[in-house]
Design a protein around this nucleic acid. Sequence first.
DNA 1: CTAAAACCTGACACTGACGTCAGAGGCAAG
DNA 2: CTTGCCTCTGACGTCAGTGTCAGGTTTTAG
Lengths: 130, 130
Amino acid sequence: MRIGELAKRAGVSVRSLRYYEEQGLLTSERSASGQRYYSEEALDRVLFLKRLYAAGLTSRVIAELLPCTYAPSIQTSDDAFDRMVEERERLKSHIDDLAGTLRNLDAVIDTNRRWRASQSQDAASGTTAS
Amino acid sequence: MRIGELAKRAGVSVRSLRYYEEQGLLTSERSASGQRYYSEEALDRVLFLKRLYAAGLTSRVIAELLPCTYAPSIQTSDDAFDRMVEERERLKSHIDDLAGTLRNLDAVIDTNRRWRASQSQDAASGTTAS
DNA sequence: CTAAAACCTGACACTGACGTCAGAGGCAAG
DNA sequence: CTTGCCTCTGACGTCAGTGTCAGGTTTTAG
């Protein structure tokens, strides 16, 4: 498939796909005229890339992990593997942190909800708020 | 306390504190000469800001939420409250997504670990890899 | 009193992941 | 053949959060 179709199916922009290739995260076959052609496999790859980006990994880091992900071999893997475990830990603690923030937000929301409830009660009992 | 101390205690840069103020996320008393002075409360506030930033909220969004967070009142809260609940949901699904990515990474790591184990076994049994 | 350290405003620099535009070529349909 | 859409490269624009520098004032320590 060509770049437009891949973009549409993966839910990313054409620009992004070219950027990914520029960063060494994605490869493509080229026609004689230079047009990019992608296999079905590329779709999975792009979807995976999306997840890693969403996980806050930068393209440079992703580039370091990819050899490990797609072509396990002793030489390429030794560093990449450690890197990947490292990033896994980073992601894990980030998630934990976010979970903390979520609880935090929930507390704030709850406080507000109670406060608003009490206000509407005041209003109902004739007390003018403001 | 002055800006340098707050920065140190909160673990952010002085520049960031000034930026937060510029964005309306943080206020300060000013001395006659214009120097910022902060109360202890400001520390909590900055720490909370850090979390929201880490949660991927932009300063504009945070600015919308803050009235709700710090000064519940019917007028300011109505919009802000909805906004906050909305952001909570966004954060929640983001966390879920990240958790998915984490499992994804774990799977990749596991695959690699197995592969590496099998390789080292091959090596031990005299098989030359590569 | 004086030097060092901290602070002020204002402005420009940077990074990353794109958007967007220009100018040119490729390709299927009528 | 032409019309219209897709693609190409290259380059500059954007946005958020922050670094950093300049040039000047204030506060603190000795």
